[in-house]
Amino acid sequence: MAKISRGRCRLRYLLARAKTSQAELSRRTGYSRQQISNWVNNREMMSYDAAATVAYALNCQMEDLYELMVLH
């Protein structure tokens, strides 16, 4: 059976699509601007709770936040 894993974060694209800055997302979610930057630049992966909060703030699905990779 194939396993699905998270790839690169798509937050940069989603912020541009929503015409929202990292600073604005920080204000909406309560996460620091540095934390948002870490996710955008793929230095860290979001926790489940963080992904749910960010998805809600950007009006998207949690699955939209990362490229999905199928591992065989």
Rank of each mutant, 00 (worst) to 15 (best):
Q22I: 00
S32A: 01
T20H: 11
Q35P: 03
N59D: 15
T29G: 03
I4Q: 12
A57V: 04
H72L: 13
A2V: 13
N59R: 15
M45H: 15
A18K: 09
V70R: 15
A50R: 07
E24Y: 03
L68R: 02
V70K: 15
D49L: 04
R27T: 08
I4T: 12
L15S: 04
A18Y: 11
V70L: 13
Y48K: 06
S47T: 10
K3N: 12
L71Y: 03
S47F: 08
D49V: 07
R8Y: 12
S32R: 02
E44H: 15
S32G: 04
L65W: 08
R33T: 03
E44F: 14
C60I: 00
G30L: 06
L65H: 01
E63V: 07
S32P: 00
V54Q: 03
A50W: 02
D49P: 01
L58P: 05
H72A: 14
S21K: 07
S32E: 01
W39D: 05
T29V: 04
G7H: 01
Y31S: 05
I4W: 11
I4E: 13
K3G: 02
L11I: 06
V70S: 14
Q22P: 10
Y56D: 15
M46N: 06
M1P: 12
T29F: 01
H72I: 11
M62P: 06
C60H: 04
R10Y: 04
H72W: 13
Q35W: 09
